[in-house]
Design a protein around this nucleic acid. Structure first.
Lengths: 289, 289
DNA sequence: GCCCGGCGATACCGTGCGGGTATCGCCGTA
DNA sequence: TACGGCGATACCCGCACGGTATCGCCGGGC
């Protein structure tokens, strides 16, 4: 099975329409039909049920769609990692823009002070983007925040766990409180919750605004368009007009340094060592399920 | 990057010789040289350092070798799983031949008694083979034994933990004891330890015989050619001439039902449910590191 | 010192396959 | 009944992949 064939199949399986898939792939429809037919012949399995008004997946087709996506992701990651391994040495670290700034600074300082450090390139991301970059092999490591990000299939080192605070516009009645419960926030009729991107980048439905990054988030809170619940450490960068109120019953947030278990390298090992030195050895080999 | 190119590169990187790699791939050397050169051009990275008497890997080459192997394994698994998904439904379960027989029977009975069971094909394996079959996608699930097998990158459900016994030929001086320490066994001058296959199928060096399966193992013990340390449950199938003596300080062995986290299917979910019902919910999402 | 053998690279050639266009057969619908 | 959209088929072309022959380089043995 060639990756080209997998690309073709995934496109057709996602579009459920040969014509659209062919356009998306930048090719004509007939060779695509032939390629899929040949793939089915080689696998000895029908992948698609065709009828004159479209295509549906068979059981085997569902399996190959799922497996094929992971294979293509692995191929892309292999390419990216190889390409970067050929460049002058240097680590690329992904982090949410505007989050865990002190923690990041401490980590980078410790690494730079360690034995033979290499330059670290910081890649500041929109919400949820770091995890994708890490899985794609575009970065060597990422600063993730549990339980928002997932470390499934990654190795990770716990750095820090903290409670959460609610961010409210300064004038809001609840902004004067010394503590809040989550239920009080979700019950607010005037302030919706922000909508954070899902794993695939899409947004859930709902009344609140779609959030891409930290700057946009605090601006929307200041404008009275929503509330937000964020880790304690975000208090250090509150913009005027936004008040932080502790929310003791919100799930604590753990910052972890995550990396691909397959992608070991000497500089990466140094970064992990620095993380352990600074934040203590709370290694958290992440569950797969 | 096409899987064909990856196959080529892995072959060359493993052989460190274009001619041998070409022979292994069943092709001539010149097109192989060209294909690798083209791969390097496309990746924009030198993968191999050539000189007139062979080839060495660059840093990027090492990375691509590691990543490429995992990609090729994933591709092979995807093919196998898709092919099997196209066959009439049925689960394939891999288990060490002659190990955990009662446990296996209990699991299969419980599954067959559950809601809409499908036929279960039992694939009895040589030592260490189940894990490979599972990772290759040739089976849906496997009965593994920790700490001998590894569940890294797999999902697993703990079924049962037990101590170990030493198997000794009937006439041996230690066979009369009621318990043994590991050190007493390894110190034996007359009986070597068996050599079990490593993860890649090769065998470590040493004096003992190379072990492939359970039958061969107990025969060799009966013949006085070695001792062995096995889980308690192997006592139920002792052949005449073999005595089992508890070894309290041997690491306990845990039998787990393992499956690929990516390969979810309804029948597999049923099997896992049956395992949880029979053996209690000791789910052990396995560490990745 | 020379020659030989083994290495990877290069030159050149044929062909099979991947991709193109044109068209068909089928079906739902206006 | 005619049309439009679907996937399949027919046919053609070009190129990239694989083959053979050969080169340039180097190290070792006689």
């Amino acid at each position: 099975m060639e990756t080209r064939e997998l690309h073709y199949f995934v496109a057709v399986a996602e579009e459920l329409n040969f014509g659209r898939a062919a356009r998306r792939l930048g090719m004509a429809q007939p060779p695509l039909s032939r390629a899929i037919a040949q793939l089915e012949r080689r696998l000895g399995t029908v992948l698609l049920e065709r009828d004159s008004r479209g295509v549906t997946l068979t059981g085997a087709g569902h399996v190959l769609l799922r497996e094929g996506r992971t294979v293509l992701a692995a191929v892309a990651a292999a390419e990216a990692r190889t390409r970067r391994a050929g460049q002058p040495p240097g680590l690329v670290l992904a982090a949410k823009a505007g989050a865990s700034t002190e923690l990041l600074a401490a980590l980078l300082d410790a690494y730079a002070a360690g034995p033979d450090p290499v330059p670290v390139d910081l890649r500041l991301c929109r919400f949820g983007e770091q995890e994708r970059l890490l899985r794609e092999g575009a970065v060597d490591a990422a600063l993730l925040h549990l339980p928002f990000d997932s470390t499934v299939g990654l190795d990770a080192e716990e750095l820090h766990t903290e409670g959460q605070v609610a961010l409210l516009p300064a004038g809001h009645p609840l902004a004067a409180r010394t503590a809040l419960r989550l239920a009080e926030l979700t019950a607010l009729p005037d302030l919706p919750a922000p909508r954070f991107p899902r794993r695939d980048g899409s947004y859930p439905d709902g009344p609140g605004p779609e959030i891409r990054d930290h700057a946009q988030l605090s601006e929307l809170v200041a404008l009275g368009r929503m509330y937000a619940v964020l880790p304690d450490s975000s208090r250090t960068q509150l913009r005027p007009g936004v008040i932080a109120v502790p929310v003791p019953d919100a799930r604590p947030v753990t910052s972890v340094l995550a990396w691909d278990p397959v992608a070991r390298s000497r500089p990466l090992a140094g970064l992990v060592r620095a993380a352990i030195e600074v934040f203590g050895p709370n290694s958290c080999p992440s569950p797969v399920s």
